[in-house]
Nucleic acid binder design. Structure first.
Lengths: 140, 140
DNA sequence: GTAAATGCAAAAACTTTGCAAATTC
DNA sequence: GAATTTGCAAAGTTTTTGCATTTAC
């Protein structure tokens, strides 16, 4: 069902980009990926990074995360899983499978909408931002 | 717990903006709100619309929807509810309470993350885009 | 009268794209 | 060798911001 046609050539840049994303619980923005790939391929361009992130997520090799606020993030893990999202700094983390496996979201039916899946995002504050809260007195 | 300090004055623009959002199952982008407010207040600026959407959502009077892909949407209904999201056109619709009320997402605990809530988005295709699919042969 | 809010315009932030040159298979 | 991919730079989109002026209370 999934077109596997776009990945034709494993360029150095593509390889580095995939390596970058191949890390647990890591959900970088395009710019973060760019900066890391750049260390080994200094002349890489942001455009190339965006193009590859787009191609790879269309292929289903990686996942594009749209729920993180204004800036898009990417996830090297294409298999369905849930995320937690820090409301203060925007960070995304994986919800451990063990914690969420038993969640059983039922199949929903709607008259005018064909539902094909769902996303569940837990919100709150990461360790780092919790600490800051204590000093700030609840900044917004 | 919620600072109620920013809404100091009910300006004409603010009133019109709130009226615009006061409609069921309507999740406009800032630009859509702008165009509508503009009909009655032709000199309103997009900046004002953005500023008000921001203030009002911080007040908890409306909701900022971050899950709709690249463009942010807003919801006049501040009470927690679930959304459905069209993968083709980006539209957002409300999941009817009756359909989702019995969903019982348990309280989650994580070691390094303080979870305060969750968002659940059902994905699929709206009536309009389902029709288009049939003609297109599964566009992307 | 005064603080808050607006309009305008410029800038910031993020993402996409055209095209000639380079690279992969 | 041919088609894909890249780098570069320019442009597109969405959102934010500074500041003088206007407005609500």
């Amino acid at each position: 069902m999934k077109t596997q046609s776009s990945i034709r050539r494993m360029t150095r840049q593509r390889r580095l980009l995939l390596d970058t994303l191949d890390r647990k619980n890591w959900h970088p923005t395009a710019d973060e990926v760019y900066r890391i790939v750049k260390m080994k391929a200094p002349r890489v361009s942001l455009g190339t990074v965006y193009r590859n992130l787009d191609i790879l997520s269309k292929e289903g090799v990686i996942t594009k995360i749209e729920e993180a606020g204004s800036q898009r993030r990417y996830d090297g893990n294409p298999r369905p899983h849930y995320h937690v999202h820090c409301l203060k700094c925007g960070a995304i983390a994986d919800m451990p499978d063990e914690a969420a496996r038993w969640l059983n979201i039922p199949k929903m039916e709607l008259p005018d909408f064909k539902i094909t899946g769902h996303r569940l995002i837990f919100e709150g504050y990461c360790a780092h931002c919790q600490d800051k809260e204590e000093m700030d007195g609840k900044g917004n």
